[in-house]
Amino acid sequence: MRARRSVSKVTDTAPDHDELARLVAAAGRVADHSSLHPWRLIELRGEDRERLGRAIHQAEGKDGASSKPLRAPLLIAVVACIRPSGKVPDWEQEAVAAGVAHMLSLALDEHGWGVIWRTGRYTRSAPVAELHGLQEDERLLGWLYVGGKPERDREGKQHTIDAERFLSPLPR
Rank of each mutant, 00 (worst) to 15 (best):
R172P: 14
Y122A: 15
L108P: 00
E155F: 04
L75Q: 11
G147V: 01
D162H: 08
T160V: 11
M103K: 10
D32W: 01
H57E: 15
L170H: 11
I76W: 00
T119L: 01
I82T: 05
D153G: 05
W91N: 03
S85G: 03
L131T: 12
V146D: 09
R124T: 12
R29I: 11
R118P: 03
R118V: 06
R139N: 07
V24R: 12
V88M: 08
D153R: 10
D90F: 11
G64H: 04
H111K: 13
Q93H: 02
L23A: 04
E92C: 03
I161K: 12
P84K: 14
G120T: 13
V78I: 12
T11R: 09
R51M: 07
A77L: 05
G156D: 03
A3Q: 13
L70Q: 08
V78E: 00
P38E: 05
E60T: 11
R22V: 09
H37R: 15
W143M: 08
H132Y: 11
L144N: 05
R165K: 14
L167D: 14
R5A: 10
L20I: 12
A72E: 04
K9H: 08
V79Q: 01
F166W: 15
G156E: 08
L20Q: 10
A65H: 09
K157F: 07
Q158K: 09
G120L: 11
L44K: 11
R29M: 14
L20E: 06
R172W: 08
R40I: 02
V79A: 03
G114W: 02
A31Y: 00
H111E: 09
S67I: 08
C81N: 13
L41W: 06
G148R: 05
V128G: 03
E151V: 02
G147M: 04
V88L: 10
H57P: 07
L140R: 05
R51E: 10
A101Y: 02
R54G: 05
H132C: 07
S168L: 10
H132N: 07
V128D: 06
S34H: 13
R165Q: 11
R4T: 06
S34A: 14
R124I: 15
R121H: 07
V88K: 12
T13E: 15
R152C: 09
V115E: 04
R83L: 06
L52E: 05
D16F: 02
L134I: 06
R83P: 06
R22I: 07
P169L: 10
L104E: 08
R49H: 12
V100I: 05
D90E: 15
C81L: 12
V100K: 02
T13S: 14
I56L: 09
E43W: 12
Q93G: 00
E92L: 10
